[in-house]
């Protein structure tokens, strides 16, 4: 009798143990893993720049450098992206050949910046705002907007503008989403190109330092304010255009606008900025 109970207990324990061992494989809390990364990432900057207020990281390099910040504030008095926002608004409402418009694809009048990027669990990929804009066009029989700038950036600028203040809160809920996140993370920390440099090298380790006359922006906040009107470009461009430029500068292979590589990178970078607010479009020198 005693033995039977013991045996039963043992089997029970074994069943329980197997359950404990196998269950986590199905129920990994990916969000918790990601949240731990976010905490570490944001903690790095808090420690490195104890005087910088968290919300100021949305202002890029101007969060770190007082003099540059003053000049930028002056630039923002007559924002160079103003005309692009206007043009974007017109494009957003302009009827397609079928009578619909971009406006018919997006709820809330298009003030949806805060919903992107997100991981589409059905299609198993990251969807960015720019991707959604072009998919709306294609779904309505129009051609997608080409490239890193022009109409795509203008529509994105308008949608960012009317969404200003929306909070960044990107989630990672599945193994597939976590995989995309990890790809973006590897891209961010990996050394590449002829010059053998990583995003993290310039935008974490050496954030705030001078690379010749440029001051390095912190990676925290990198994706809050795009698209950006950059004086050097003389026009407005997307986040992926900036990625392309930073890849190119170190002799690394650039990827296409809305390539999977850049979407995963945007996914990772935006998650690292969780808690900040979208404040695009912005002006940069």
């Amino acid at each position: 009798m005693k033995k039977t109970i013991q045996r039963r207990l043992l089997t029970g324990a074994l069943v329980l143990m197997t359950a404990l061992v196998t269950k986590p494989a199905h129920a990994v809390n990916y969000q918790a893993l990601v949240d731990a990364d976010v905490k570490k990432f944001q903690g790095y900057f808090r420690k490195e720049f104890p005087d910088v207020k968290f919300e100021d990281y949305g202002d890029g390099v101007y969060a770190l450098d007082e003099d540059a910040r003053k000049q930028w504030k002056e630039m923002e008095e007559f924002p160079p992206y103003e005309l692009d926002v206007e043009a974007g608004k017109a494009l957003f409402n302009k009827p397609f050949a079928n009578g619909k418009s971009l406006a018919s694809c997006f709820p809330n009048g298009g003030a949806v910046r805060g919903n992107y990027p997100y991981f589409d669990e059905k299609r198993k990929q990251v969807v960015t705002l720019e991707m959604a804009i072009n998919e709306c066009r294609v779904a309505n029989g129009e051609k997608p907007y080409p490239g890193f700038k022009g109409d795509l950036a203008k529509v994105s600028a308008y949608m960012a503008y009317i969404s200003r203040g929306q909070k960044i809160d990107v989630k990672v809920k599945s193994a597939a989403a976590y995989k995309a996140y990890m790809k973006g993370k590897a891209f961010f920390y990996g050394k590449r190109g002829q010059l053998n440099m990583s995003c993290s090298g310039c935008h974490m380790e050496y954030a705030g330092r001078h690379l010749r006359a440029e001051i390095m922006s912190p990676a925290l906040g990198h994706t809050t304010h795009f698209p950006v009107f950059r004086s050097k470009w003389g026009e407005i461009g997307t986040l992926h255009k900036r990625y392309e430029g930073c890849n190119d500068n170190i002799g690394a292979k650039p990827f296409e606008e809305q390539s999977e590589e850049y979407r995963d990178l945007e996914f990772f970078q935006t998650i690292m900025s969780n808690g900040l607010k979208f404040n695009g479009p912005a002006a940069r020198k």
Partner: peptide, 9 residues
């Protein structure tokens, strides 16, 4: 920096 607008150098 504003005048020269350099990328990497």
């Amino acid at each position: 920096a504003i005048l020269m607008l350099p990328s990497l150098g």
